[in-house]
Design a protein around this nucleic acid. Sequence first.
DNA 1: TGCATAAAGTATCGAGGCGAAACCAATTTG
DNA 2: CAAATTGGTTTCGCCTCGATACTTTATGCA
Lengths: 215, 215
Amino acid sequence: MTVNDGQSPSETAKNDDPMAGETPDHAARVAELIDRLGRMTRELQYVDGLNPAQWEALRYLNRANRYSRTPGGVADFLGATKGTISQTVSALESKGLIARTPSDRDKRVCLIDLTAEGERMIARDPVRCIETIVGGMDDRTAALMVDGLGRLMASLQFELGSKPFGVCAACCRHLAPEAGCKKSEAVPKCGMTGEPLQGDAPQRICVNYLGDAAE
Amino acid sequence: MTVNDGQSPSETAKNDDPMAGETPDHAARVAELIDRLGRMTRELQYVDGLNPAQWEALRYLNRANRYSRTPGGVADFLGATKGTISQTVSALESKGLIARTPSDRDKRVCLIDLTAEGERMIARDPVRCIETIVGGMDDRTAALMVDGLGRLMASLQFELGSKPFGVCAACCRHLAPEAGCKKSEAVPKCGMTGEPLQGDAPQRICVNYLGDAAE
DNA sequence: TGCATAAAGTATCGAGGCGAAACCAATTTG
DNA sequence: CAAATTGGTTTCGCCTCGATACTTTATGCA
């Protein structure tokens, strides 16, 4: 069957690759899987009249502490520009999923809250299906995945340049004026990336580890 | 690099935390990480004048067997429409990264090959950085990640509906006329998702397990 | 054989996302 | 108190992508 006569250049290219043995090459596999999963996850989120960016913003707003629920917070978190986020937020508002209220502390900022409708929407979050799938796996595997993916994300954030969506940093920065923590002082990295919350002050709670502390 | 080197991420973060007792909920964590990693990976791919879709197409074309390197194959793989892919392919061609040649077997289809330029480009694939990061992890973790992510993807493909980017199926379908394998006969799932190639006929080689078999 | 239908690709159109830049208002800094 | 910063919004234009229509070639059915 001749599938392989006159073979493709990719084959030859692979041969001089030192890692190209029979080994599955987990690293490459993970990279590819991440890539494809990202695509699928993205596609998954075109539902209920929202787009991926809107879902992600909504998700963030649902989990961020009150001082982080601002357009700027979303922008930092999503790594998008303020202008773009302004549109996203407007879209969510016009759909009745969130409500903007001007802050009385700083009249420039506006605080965002999910409406009841928004809560209902987030309850149907399409990425929830990933959760249930993973929930079906044995706990050890899941834990290892959290660990590995977390480290991957931390590295990637670092790689992506000086402004690595600094979620936690941004949150703490926002929280700072009220909580009395200095802007200048170093702030623990995002708990989601696997880094521990070094300062233990609960006031410093940040979106990513908000889940496990009371605000 | 980052500070996260030797430490156990999941547990240490919530020592004095009242809510810490409740399970870390790995599933939710994984879902969130996948989501965010997808976003970052996407962002990562706006480089060298290509966009994510173009990178993914190029990546596919670099790994697909000769019968799968067609616009339709790319469309199936990426889960996009033919029209969209036609544009993507045109873009890649105009950049000199691929070459289209009409098939003499079926004059409707056109075969696609990477040019030397394309090979050079793919060598600088930005998602390669994920590979190197994961390469730095211990092998057991990496293996578990491959396993977990692979299963996740398999489930997700199933979830996404009847036409789950059926990469492998599509490949085999394309390969079929030449290889003499029936369209009707059940085809082993994609090797990338962790499912083994059950029929061992090398003719059935498909993009996703092309890497670990001799073609 | 011939006609109908399906399939591969392409071209065109329009909606929508997103970044850039200009802009406004409020706050901080010197 | 002016100057510089910062949070947010608006406008503009590029670009991606799906939908649709169309062309060409294959296939299937009488």
